[in-house]
Amino acid sequence: MKLQLKKSGGFALSEVMVSTAVFSAVSMGLLMGFTSLERNFTATADFATNHADEMRISDYLALDLRRALSVQAAQNDTTILIPAYYDNAGNPQTPALDGRGGVVYGAIGSSVRVRYYLSGSTIYRQQDSAAPITVAMNVKDFVFNVTDLGKVVTTRITFNPTFMAGGASAAATAATAFYNTTLLRNSRTDIASSVY
């Protein structure tokens, strides 16, 4: 009985080495799989977050462009003038005729300057001289372009996806482009032709 117990309770060196090798290989595979999964998950989550940021930046720009009186477009720095709809207390003003067939809020010629710009890794929206508010954070690789076509304005926003360890290719960045085309509802004050 003792001899039998010793025989079944131990392993030969070769058995241990083989099992260790198998265990190591499986563990390594699992580790690599989990690592890859984790990186993929992070990249996907990052992509989704960036896409939500794109959508928000686009919505912000479209919101102000719809009510714009004029647009000064540049890459990562766009200024939009909108009607001075609110008074100093933040309440809507009563509209008045401007004597030229149009309507004005506040004094004739008045407007509110809204500027969107990228600074560091944050995109801000600043209204006149008020403190800028954050539109999107951790977006230093974002590029937003506003193209002024007169009656409509298009926006294009891209970022660098992080699926590749070596950085995003130009094609991969281009594939993240988020487009929006906005019809300006108001007659523009900075060009001759009007919207309607």
Partner: peptide, 11 residues
């Protein structure tokens, strides 16, 4: 009639 002023109130 035509629209001469358009503003979205974002308060």
């Amino acid at each position: 009639y035509k629209i001469v002023s358009w503003f979205e109130d974002t308060r």
